[in-house]
Design a protein around this nucleic acid. Structure first.
Lengths: 104, 104
DNA sequence: TATGAATATGCGGCATGTCGCATATGCGTA
DNA sequence: TACGCATATGCGACATGCCGCATATTCATA
């Protein structure tokens, strides 16, 4: 996948949103508080390496930030996203939710 | 990529949005009027088979609709999307635009 | 019916993405 | 320092996605 430099960030964000496990992680992280990888593993039924890699994708897309806290790494949503990206995130997470409700 | 049936539509939409050529096609189609494949090919500098396949992905994701008109196939944005999906589209296309402006 | 324009699609090659397994790294505690 | 827990990462297998090429399909016109 090639892309002009100017839209590389956008591309990374959309790639990050393409995976259901990553979107589920975002739903959890979107409460604004911190969550360690082991919690996300448990709640999303993902192996350790799998979860760690998914979090790396989200981090490199700028959607979440992490912090070392003793032996844990605490992830949370990036509080410094541009309004445009925040709008994308709200819309995607809200749409996802609406699809889930639709089925229930 | 596996996913629960309930979010299959959402998954298809996000996959569709993941490709820059498809997003560029959506920008063109988002003016609300009809555009044939040959026009999109020219404007996006894409080969015929490549453009045709990209349009198929957009169509199957429910983002655009098509109509036979003599030897042409006219595509336009789907006017019957849910409000949640319309919000996603607006946010993504707007964010893309903001990234382009940022560089200029 | 023959021809040509516009579009779709089967196929194979190649790039990218995802995952498990094993191992490395960072940190706290004994 | 040795050990254990939490996390990250190199590697290889496998699945998926994208593309060009060739061919099929659809439609209008001669």
């Amino acid at each position: 996948m090639r892309h002009a430099a100017y839209s590389y960030a956008m591309q990374q964000i959309l790639n990050a949103l393409c995976d259901p496990t990553r979107r589920n992680a975002l739903v959890i992280l979107w409460d604004g508080s911190e969550h360690c990888v082991c919690e996300l593993m448990d709640r999303l039924d993902a192996s350790q390496s799998r979860m760690s890699r998914h979090m790396k994708v989200l981090r490199e897309a700028g959607l979440v930030i992490d912090r070392r806290d003793a032996q844990w790494v605490r992830y949370r949503r990036n509080p410094d996203m541009t309004p445009e990206i925040m709008a994308v995130m709200s819309a995607v997470l809200n749409a996802e939710k609406s699809f889930e409700l639709e089925k229930a």
